[in-house]
Design a protein around this nucleic acid. Structure first.
Lengths: 150, 150
DNA sequence: ATAACACCTAAACCTGACTTTAAGTCAAGC
DNA sequence: GCTTGACTTAAAGTCAGGTTTAGGTGTTAT
């Protein structure tokens, strides 16, 4: 059993945030002894799941709904599984988008590296043709074409 | 030259957001004809960069600082480059973290898949040893050990 | 026994990124 | 000439996710 201060140290999460999570129902049925929160292994595991779901893009309210499902027992296994499958798909999509962003960042790094060397941005396009890996060239095209409808 | 409504359609960004960006100084020296904003290719490219920097985790104020650098001309090439290098490193770190989160999500998918099949969560640990790819087993260890100091 | 410290609550406050509202301008079509 | 639709502004409102504050309790070290 851990005090809120101890858990705060262990996870690097402010005490105020842990209390806020509790208030939002993220630690259902947490024990207390004379009013004081007692974090057990169950709450620590909850906290690990919270950090994971949060990082996967879920809001506090949605995480709370997951905790409610846990409280329902075995009947919610399939819903819980569906939740994690959904998060997995969402995260994979997000990572794909980040690859795109990373390609633009790399292009911009190259661009300013070149501009710095040349002293000007004039005519950088002309330097492009073969000096960059294909995935960045592709991005260059995207970045400088007229934008498409969305 | 494009109207704000046209740009909104092209980029899928609300008109109110474009005006907000303008107010925050993200389109320095944008042209106007009798009060009405005129988006040129320069503003469209700015918008592409804004979306990229935003996706890389920069705040509106930080993006504004970048736009100010652009206004300074060639003297800021190296600072601009440093900015993009920093964003690139940050994004790469973030993606590494997301890989970790993804491993936990995959583990949880497996976990509830198994629980659903077994009808209970009892004894799932025992099923673990060789049924999962190593990167998930590693995560299972992380998830069930006592947490470390941070 | 008194100070220090960790804990408690409720409620107010904060920040970032927008969005909405209210009131007005302006050009084009009927 | 008047309505319609796209534009304008400043200011207020919204939402999530906390953080801070004010006032109080309970245990421990000097």
């Amino acid at each position: 059993m851990y005090s809120i201060g101890r858990v705060s140290e262990m996870f690097g999460i402010p005490v105020s945030t842990l209390r806020y999570y509790d208030k939002e129902g993220l630690f259902p049925d947490m024990e207390r002894s004379s009013g004081i929160r007692r974090f057990s292994e169950r709450e620590l595991e909850a906290l690990r799941v919270i950090e994971c779901l949060k990082a996967s893009g879920l809001s506090i309210k949605e995480i709370r709904q997951f905790m409610d499902m846990v409280g329902e027992g075995p009947v919610s296994y399939s819903r819980r599984r569906a939740l994690f499958e959904g998060r997995r798909a969402a995260l994979e999509a997000e990572m794909a988008e980040m690859e795109r962003v990373l390609a633009m960042l790399k292009f911009k790094c190259w661009y300013y590296e070149t501009a710095e060397r040349e002293g000007t941005e004039e005519g950088i396009e002309a330097l492009l043709p073969d000096s960059l890996p294909p995935e960045i060239q592709v991005f260059y095209d995207r970045a400088h074409n007229k934008p498409k409808e969305e």
